[in-house]
Design a protein around this nucleic acid. Structure first.
Lengths: 183, 183
DNA sequence: ACGTCAGGTTAATGACTGTTAACCTCACAG
DNA sequence: CTGTGAGGTTAACAGTCATTAACCTGACGT
């Protein structure tokens, strides 16, 4: 695999941020975990903030793109909902650190980046809301949005538990999310 | 209301920790938000760590005590589950900052405090697991625990959404949690 | 052969951190 | 009265932080 230094930094920084929080990690920590040391980070990023910003935007973009594509590919609203749930679970299980920082560290972004990430997150939510409301005409937009965000909480809980096998967790979360949304 | 300075510090510190994370808040920030300044905090706590520790243990203790009492007071496993869900929602909706730091900042505790908080959290989870397994004999202990933690994720998501009225949110979360657990 | 430049290095910087020390004030028990 | 202790204050501490500056190396196009 051809991981550039840049990607390596983003990866290890995400892990460290997930463990100790943005302010709990120093640039020395990040560099050190990459085999380089401290200020070398500035050859690839404008600063520590920039590392977080790039992480969060790339995560949000990826969730959005794949979610949109899988939802479109589905034949029915019901299939689309199932596909969205499966995709989110797949991502959360394979990238727990990214899920953690995406839901916890966006308050540490500077205004510009925060707006961008927020917009991407809202677009992702909207995909879910559209699909859900096609299956539940009793929900108005605000209620549907609340239900979707609650479901994200459910699916994003994996990093905090994870005692059973990945496949068992996968199918259990899928069932729980589906019945929570359609209840 | 008779809020002592000590309680005031715990309260405002919890809010600040929830907003910017433990390392993102200085003792000057905390004191300043209380109308006192900086080192005055040491007249009430052994240090910054101590503030977080006291916060988290008191939160976990309170969740556990009330959860245990409400679960015992219920007439049936089904009623007990409903009561547990209602209690957790009630707490999460009225103390969003406490919910946030309880699920996010326990890694910043020193070993002793971390063990204590972890034990309280596990005891709380066990109450839920016992009730759930009385209703679902198809779940082994590990699966039930995973399901309960996923439900916590769902219920704890309120601080990140909350656009609809409290009562609407309350009943929606209740329904979602119940059907997720019993699916 | 050679300049250039991407990607490292260490040293230095000023700001900010948690914590301690030394001092002040005032309510109030004796 | 008086003195004592709870609950404040500011000043000073050693460390750590993100960031910049100045310098080094080696691959590589020409």
């Amino acid at each position: 695999m051809t991981t550039t230094r840049r990607e390596q930094i983003l990866d290890t920084a995400a892990t460290l941020f997930a463990e100790r929080g943005f302010h709990g990690v120093s640039v020395h920590d990040i560099g050190s975990a990459c085999g380089i040391s401290g200020p070398a980070l500035y050859k690839h990023f404008a600063g520590k903030d920039d590392v977080l910003t790039q992480s969060l935007t790339s995560i949000s973009q990826r969730l959005l793109d794949e979610g949109r594509s899988r939802s479109r590919a589905a034949g029915s609203p019901d299939a689309a909902l199932g596909a969205l749930i499966a995709w989110h679970i797949e991502f959360a299980l394979s990238h727990p650190a990214l899920i953690v920082i995406q839901e916890r560290e966006w308050a540490n972004l500077r205004v510009e980046g925060r707006r961008e990430v927020r917009a991407l997150q809202l677009a992702y939510i909207d995909i879910w809301v559209d699909v859900l409301r096609r299956l539940r005409d009793d929900l108005d937009a605000a209620e549907a949005r609340a239900a979707v965000q609650a479901t994200f909480g459910l699916l994003n809980s994996t990093p905090h538990s994870a005692r059973i096998s990945a496949t068992a967790m996968q199918s259990r979360l899928w069932t729980m999310a589906r019945s929570a949304l359609l209840a």
